[in-house]
Design a protein around this nucleic acid. Structure first.
Lengths: 217, 217
DNA sequence: TAGATTGTTAATCGATTAACAATC
DNA sequence: TAGATTGTTAATCGATTAACAATC
């Protein structure tokens, strides 16, 4: 009787969710109450079976044959799954240009992330307030994370410092790390590292471009 | 005799390249001339066969049994493949907090990306100089891209405006788009869209965290 | 030579897509 | 009912991993 709560959801599927969510909200805004998998598939350039499977992975909601799925039900379930409805506190380490930007960026809150403090090793930055968050010395990472019960860390330091910062975060009880340094980080197995890999994205763009330009000759 | 130049390289492999490159540079710095696949695999937590296949996909370089691969040869070939050795010009659209940050971020140049101009629809920003780049009105996107021969566009506008901006870039001859708006963009098939999907990354962090916290009970 | 490492072919694994009966 | 759509089982596809002969 008791369902296995551990719905299997692949990380690929998880990556598609924000796109579904965005489309669904758009539809809801337009007054659409029910939508079918084939319609969503067409809008997002996906396979319709994939959409149905993804929806199934999100929740217990069943679609109605001939009709489709309840738009607001889907939105609710996806936000629940993605954790956009409850906010997590995080700290950011590295107040360079990228880190600076993230402190100023308002978009994260919309996705349930709240940066509560920043750290840097450069004395020049310490004590500063950036977008209302104060910058503390890196030595205090572990202590502060423990004290504030922080479980998410954002790393925006240069690659040479990334592993050290990572270790400090882990020591502070951080369980999930968002890493913008183009470095592989070693962590205990219960800690998740999500690499943002801007370099890899740029490589893809550059490679595509090179191929396209070659075609012109 | 003539080799098929179109080496098959998967996009997964392409994503691993920056990590190889970073490690290889580190090794070179330490005076290491030759490295084996198993060593690299161990350092990056990968399978050794995968590393060998990735190296093979990069270039014609052969490793030497019992020894390994030439570190500097690999670096050279990877930078060539990733396009980090030649710079591409790009424009950025959307000078909000994230866009602002990117204009200030020095890291991109290291990867061969040079942002030459920025656009925004908000009159408040137009005419401004941000990190030495002037902000132009969005209406001029197509014209300017054509005139300057720009082929890469970076989209950092809110989701409602992303598709419109995308269309303007495409009209301006842009062939590769780096999209930070959490929206699916429709483009002609010769144009590549690389989605940066910060929302999806956050979802992964949040989901992992939720699971870990649950374990505590 | 012995042993580590290479490169390649075959087996495994997992995700996507196709096929199809069930439903409204 | 007829037809679109659902949910699921089976087939396909592609990437990772294992197995192994070749090489220095």
């Amino acid at each position: 009787m008791s369902e296995n709560n551990e719905k299997h959801i692949t990380i690929q599927a998880l990556h598609r969710m924000p796109y579904y969510l965005q489309k669904l909200k758009e539809l809801k805004n337009d007054g659409v109450d029910v939508v079918s998998a084939p319609k969503i598939a067409q809008m997002l350039n996906l396979n319709e079976v994939q959409v149905r499977k993804d929806f199934a992975a999100v929740s217990e909601i069943k679609g109605k044959p001939k009709a489709g799925f309840s738009v607001s039900e889907l939105i609710r379930q996806m936000e629940e799954l993605l954790g956009f409805n409850n906010t997590d506190d995080a700290v950011l380490v590295g107040v360079g240009s990228l880190g600076h930007a993230f402190l100023a960026y308002k978009g994260f809150e919309e996705y349930g992330l709240n940066i509560v403090a920043a750290f840097d090793s450069n004395p020049e930055f310490i004590g500063m307030e950036i977008s209302g968050k104060s910058v503390l010395p890196s030595e205090r990472i572990s202590e502060m994370c423990l004290r504030m019960g922080i479980h998410i860390g954002i790393i925006t330091v240069p690659e040479e410092q990334a592993q050290k910062v990572c270790d400090q975060l882990v020591a502070g009880g951080v369980l999930a790390i968002w890493n913008f340094a183009p470095v592989h980080l070693s962590v205990p197995e219960n800690v998740l590292v999500k690499n943002e890999n801007l370099a890899a994205s740029l490589a893809m763009l550059s490679k595509h471009l090179k191929e396209k330009m070659k075609e012109k000759f």
